[in-house]
């Protein structure tokens, strides 16, 4: 079986002044379809950079990245944009909803960019929002929603194109415990339905729930292990 994500010798260098910083220093990682993976590590360890590379938001300086068996580092900007649109859903710490658009319109954005007709967009967005318990919040703008509701809108937006992969960068970092647990619950539910889920977090409670945990230090994988059943379900 081909891995959904396969990274080989991925490096990402940043030039700061006349120094070169190795944010990613030779990452080898394979993620199978349907996996639930947590990436942890201290601040500045390169875990967000890794997520950006996997999400095609950032190009690695060196190395090979295959998504569904296709080398995506060779794609043009336009082609990468299309892959992001159809295959990858993003959930961010700060939600990143467009403030002037309603929940419904925010969820429709990826479909709008894909050129899907308005009628179909409206139906699909409504269905997804409905499923996430936001049916009565469809026409509210982000500033009229609670943090947890905003993140649920963002998840609706990430899933409306039915992607193979969801990348979540500190999805609970800006939420209270209760909303955070709710959001993680939704993401895990999506994972249970077959969507591959990669979460970047430094919340050990959340990391402990993932079936596989990759720990990064100084741009390199320090440990990569499946969940120890004895220590699971502590969150």
């Amino acid at each position: 079986m081909t891995a959904l994500v396969r990274l080989q010798g991925i490096r990402r260098d940043f030039r700061v002044g006349d120094q070169v910083v190795h944010a990613l220093d030779g990452i080898d990682l394979a993620v199978e379809t349907g996996e639930y993976l947590a990436i942890t590590g201290p601040s500045g360890s390169g875990k967000s950079t890794l997520l950006n590379v996997i999400g095609l938001l950032d190009r690695p300086t060196a190395g090979r990245y295959e998504l569904r068996g296709e080398d995506v580092t060779l794609l043009s900007d336009e082609q990468q944009a299309a892959v992001r649109n159809r295959t990858i859903g993003f959930v961010f710490q700060f939600f990143h909803l467009v403030p002037r658009l309603t929940a419904q319109e925010n969820v429709e954005l990826p479909m709008l960019l894909a050129g899907i007709a308005p009628e179909e967009r409206a139906g699909r967005a409504a269905a997804v929002l409905d499923r996430l318990g936001l049916a009565d919040r469809r026409h509210h703008r982000p500033d009229q929603l609670s943090g947890g509701q905003r993140q649920r809108v963002a998840i609706a937006r990430a899933t409306v194109m039915q992607p193979a992969l969801i990348l979540a960068d500190e999805p609970t970092g800006n939420l209270d415990t209760h909303s955070g647990a709710e959001v993680i619950g939704i993401l895990e539910q999506l994972n249970a339905e077959g969507i591959t889920l990669i979460v970047v977090t430094h919340d050990t409670g959340i990391a402990g729930r993932a079936r596989r945990r990759v720990h990064i230090v100084d741009g390199a994988i320090q440990s990569d292990r499946a969940r120890d059943p004895a220590h699971g379900e502590t969150g």
Partner: peptide, 8 residues
């Protein structure tokens, strides 16, 4: 917008 798949 770029993350959601907007081309340049």
């Amino acid at each position: 917008l770029k993350a959601l798949g907007a081309t340049p």
